[in-house]
Simulated assay, not measured.
Amino acid sequence: MAVRRVARTLTAVAAAVLIGTGAAACSGGDGGKDSGSAAMTFKAPAAADVLAKLPAKLADDGTTVIVGKPDAPHTVKVYLDPQCMYCAKFELGGGEALAKAIEGGKVKAEYTVASFLDQGETGGSTRAANAMRAALEQGKFAEFAAAVYANQPTEGSKGAFGEEDLLKIADKVPGLRGAAFDKAVKELTYKDWVTKSNKAFVDSGLQGTPAVLLGDKQLQTKEGLFTADGFAKALKDAGFN
């Protein structure tokens, strides 16, 4: 089955997926097929100082991004789409606690960046995911990815994550902007990686984002996903401390 067809199906599924006892999922959108840039005011991500210190590398599978010490005893798997509003809620809540846990050295995160909200086209999710991959090359994945979610436009808005928006966000990440990064953003250098990463999400069998797995157990509660205290408690309950 073509990735595009699966992506469209997943968009419909994601609109109805339940997390815990209440609906909390991404809805479909055109993903910003118009690459125009909208006015924006930069918002710094939570725990930016912690995120700036976190190492990241591409895993051997060529799609997963490992954040933290590769030999950390516990693994949190995170599946996100850059345009998903609930993914932004996770990054601004549970993601803050995750960053601090990674800093402590006992936890690493394995990120799979999806782009199904683009519905198979080159839209905001594709452009943002490509920029995240470019940031990885500069050693700035965690900090830049969090900044992307902190400055997420309205889901499905036309022109979402335009080229100029992504460069403005990158301006606020010390040491990220440069000829290589800017070229990668403008030319979609890592578009093939974006496609493969989205396929990895599709192949996982997960039916929406955000999806967060503590080991092999998916975290389901809103409090655990969307609040720092709730996620910290979930880590503790899972023995990840």
Rank of each mutant, 00 (worst) to 15 (best):
R8S: 12
V13C: 11
A16T: 15
V17P: 00
I19Q: 11
G20I: 12
A23K: 10
A25P: 06
A25N: 14
A25G: 15
S27R: 03
D30P: 13
G31C: 09
G32W: 03
K33W: 09
D34W: 11
T41R: 15
K43D: 07
A46W: 02
V50M: 02
L51P: 09
K53L: 13
K53Q: 15
L54K: 01
P55R: 02
L58G: 05
D60T: 14
T64V: 13
T64L: 13
T64D: 09
V65K: 03
V67L: 04
G68C: 11
K69P: 14
P70A: 03
D71I: 14
A72I: 14
H74D: 04
T75D: 14
V76C: 01
Y79K: 06
Y79G: 02
P82N: 01
P82R: 05
Q83S: 13
M85P: 12
Y86V: 11
Y86E: 05
C87N: 01
C87Q: 05
K89S: 07
K89I: 07
F90G: 02
E91A: 12
E91W: 11
L92R: 08
L92G: 09
G93V: 08
G94H: 03
G94L: 04
A97Y: 02
E103W: 06
K108A: 06
K108C: 06
K108V: 10
E110W: 04
Y111M: 08
T112A: 10
V113T: 10
S115T: 15
Q119V: 07
G123M: 06
S125W: 10
A129P: 10
A131T: 14
A131F: 03
M132N: 03
R133K: 13
A135V: 08
Q138R: 08
K140R: 15
A142M: 10
A145Y: 00
A146V: 04
A147P: 04
V148R: 00
P153K: 01
T154R: 00
T154L: 10
G156C: 11
F161W: 03
F161K: 00
D165N: 15
A170W: 00
K172L: 00
P174E: 15
P174Q: 00
G175Y: 07
L176T: 12
A179Q: 12
A179Y: 04
D182N: 15
K183C: 09
K183V: 07
K183Y: 08
A184V: 10
K186Y: 04
E187D: 14
L188G: 12
L188S: 12
T189S: 12
K196N: 13
K199T: 14
A200W: 02
V202F: 13
D203Y: 06
D203L: 09
D203C: 09
S204Y: 10
S204I: 14
L206N: 07
A211P: 07
V212S: 05
V212Q: 00
L214M: 06
L214F: 10
G215R: 08
G215A: 04
K217I: 14
Q220D: 10
T221I: 12
T221Q: 08
E223R: 07
F226D: 01
F226I: 11
T227V: 10
D229H: 05
A232V: 15
K233Y: 04
A234I: 13
L235P: 06
K236C: 00
A238V: 08
F240N: 03
N241T: 09
N241S: 12
